[in-house]
Write a protein that binds this DNA or RNA. Structure first.
Lengths: 115, 115
DNA sequence: TAAATAAATAATTATTTACTTATATAATAG
DNA sequence: CTATTATATAAGTAAATAATTATTTATTTA
């Protein structure tokens, strides 16, 4: 399979977004499974608006998509993005975020809805 | 061949550096061949110190190395960096910078030394 | 050794970024 | 309908970034 080519300016914009530890971790977590905002709140030591703003940037760049389910909004990687191939290749070099996934499954913030 | 794993913080730092169009272009050019500072000056519309500072950041991160040859300093990719594998994989998604390489070969700023 | 060239460093500045708190919007439950 | 919960948006701010100009350092050449 050929590598997808991305215009250098688009690539730089994407790399800049992934060049933030929080966002890179978010994306690495989403590679393992979709997450809702309240789940990210469990693992990042920052305010809810801060997390929302990171997700917004990733969404504006087309890297993630959101899906509302009741009062929760779930985020996942956008596999249709022209940036997806590059994102995948980057994530292969980044450790799995299994600890963080375990952490949210333990505290299970969306317990009440049975997601 | 297994993908090299990079700690998420290191990966984020590297991606932040590549998340700048000038630096990403520099690195893409260096994938094709080593270049000296005056050659970068031919293709980027910015001051010499600005280019030097970009190169310094890439060097501090271990992504490029420099080699003085007379009054010129040549930069090349540091293949021994723990980040090299990731960098290579990213560059596979970025267009070749052949136009820029041609441009510097045309004006040939280091003509006088016969490099 | 003096002048010229190549590159790095220092100091400054405008812009961008990543956070904060406060507030608004949207959905659900009582 | 009201209260609660989940998330987004707005406004403000401190820190980081990418550029600039001025200066310094290093090398070559006359």
């Amino acid at each position: 399979m050929e590598k997808s080519l991305v215009e250098i300016e688009h690539a730089a914009n994407m790399l800049k977004l992934l060049g933030d530890k929080t966002r890179l971790t978010i994306v690495a977590m989403l590679k393992q499974r979709q997450c809702c905002v309240c789940e990210f709140q469990e693992v990042f030591d920052m305010s809810q608006p801060s997390i929302s703003q990171h997700l917004r940037k990733l969404k504006d760049a087309g890297m993630v998509k959101e899906e509302r389910r009741g009062q929760w909004i779930y985020y996942s990687l956008n596999e249709n993005s022209e940036l997806y191939g590059l994102m995948e290749d980057i994530l292969e070099h980044v450790p799995e975020q299994t600890e963080k996934i375990k952490q949210i499954e333990k505290s299970n913030p969306t317990l009440r809805c049975g997601c």
